[in-house]
Design a protein around this nucleic acid. Sequence first.
DNA 1: AATCGTCTGCTTTTT
DNA 2: GCAGACGATT
Length: 669
Amino acid sequence: MGRFRLFDLNEPQRSAVTTIRGPLLILAGAGTGKTRVITARVAYLMAEGVKPENILAVTFTNKAATEMRERLAGMVEPDQAKKVTMSTFHALCVRILRAGIERLGYKNNFTIYDESDQLGLIRKIITRTAAQDEKLDPHQAKNLISKAKNNGWSAPADEKTLLSAVFARYQADLKTLNAVDFDDLLLLTVKLLSEHAEVREKWQLRFKYLMVDEFQDTNRLQLELVTLLADSNKNVAVVGDDDQSIYGWRGAEVANLLEFESHFPNPAVVKLEQNYRSTNAILGTANSLIKNNPRRRPKALWSAMEGGEKVRLIQAANDREEAQFVAEEIQRRSFAEGLPWEGFAVLYRMNAQSRLIEENLRRLQIPYRLVGGKSFFDSREIKDVLAYFSVLVNPDDDSNLLRIINTPARGISAGTIERATEWSARNKCSVWTALQSDGFLRELPARTVGKIAEFVELVDGYETKLNEPLADHHAVADKLLKEVGYAEDLKRTCKAADEVLKREENVRQLLQDLANFQGRSVKGLQGFLDEVMLDKSREEEEDIDKKKGVLLITLHAAKGLEFPHVFLIGLEEGVLPHDRSKVEGTLDEERRLLYVGITRAMRTLTLTYCRDRMKYGSVAPCHPSSFIKELAEEWIERKNLTEMMNAPVQEDAAKNGFARMRAMLARPT
DNA sequence: AATCGTCTGCTTTTT
DNA sequence: GCAGACGATT
């Protein structure tokens, strides 16, 4: 049984691990060893004779799935561990759909649309559908359609409003394009499993033991999916923490956790309440805050780590001073205690707040890592290359086809493209089909027909090359880009030389990723695209983990992480809780957001707020967050920033790094 | 087809 | 204060 030992677990953990029949609800507070329990439970199932291929563990992020997989590999035979399915909801759905989506009238080479693909299509539909005086914000439309789908509606109730017309059109277009968006992955899987008993039974037979992580974040469709996958035995173990539900705005239903009993009657319930992460000062602060929330599963987190430093609550004159303090304090502490930069994190409500912190860290030459923001995959060249790949797999997807049909320019004009799109709409087919239809080509001048034929031949030719046995996808892709002259096109369309270099490097990186993928998977170009679409942060996040430096991160993105020293900034009314939460009635969720932030801290926690803050380009006075008065005074130490900044460095704290610190502080800024 | 200027409207974003 | 979108202009 490898290195898996039950006696390493505390009593409730052990009970969670060894309860293997029937529904099980594990209420796992922050820092209570949740991942450990899940992986130990999988190992225990295997030790009890459950076949690894009959175990399914579902998570929300690829990162979590990977971590779990790695941990399990250290507990049981690695080749047995590989047979366990550990996957995100969406990746699982892709797998189920690739095997059976034909029953729903799609082809199994469907393309996965990300949010920008979605938005692009919706924009096009709105301009096509809206009357002169009608206006509909594409972003809003996208969000509303997404919300509707997550409620289980695959089509609008009527087509009376512009929105419902756009919704209907959007769903119909996706089907024609043989494309599915992220919501469809769930929606169509639920549809497939509920409407086709033989498919459902096949998967129920396959997965006899289900585990779901972060259950408080599941939405309606995800719960339905779990219900459909669980057979009559209902061996469903869910792990979650209602106090860490911070994705309600994305459709997550805490009710799935709070009312677990109504979906899976008579579950065993286990509470994990011993926290191994934080000091009692930090936990006491967190507990005092969260108890103000109604509708909770009552629980009391405790820690064996006595006391610890008090939580510091610091008022700054303005956001500039706040940022300056945070940066200097990180420097001071790091030098005084000889701590690496990775031990520090700065948490904030919104990304815009990172700017001043960045500036100040740079000024002090402190390395930092910024999570979030612009992605590698948002860049034009990556989208272009992925569009080429996508067209080779599914040429019926107009969006990707149109993206590359004349990129680089190959003599197919905007007018021709326009006519092809119209013709395809009239004849209810894809643009790709139109390009090969005599009826359409007849309308065009011979020269254009020739150009189109060349393009069709290009796509067909490379599709064939890719499908040859033992095809080296990286080499084929490289050859394709050379043949179309993509690099030259980059040089032509970019002004700055370093921009060209950057973009070329990105393309090179993507092709390298493809080569790596082929080295570890047999799923081909389609598999590569699936992975890219469902796990875009992959390379980036690995970078983040490898790099050193202070972590700058939003409260949302920080969930699941922990740091020895945490700075939580901007505790002001309007920022945290955010202004909008009051009109939207989501103050509880804002409170949980702060709770999540507080519970990230292991040893010290510093909360800051300002009297004035730059907002929308001008200075506005602000008030301390209403959450501050909920924090138990016994764990809090209020400090005056001005006094602190001027205070002499205390001797004992400074011993280790005093000289270095002096040198640093003396450095010109 | 590309670029410039003006307008707008400001969270969070696991997939 | 700034980014993103859109329309007018060359």
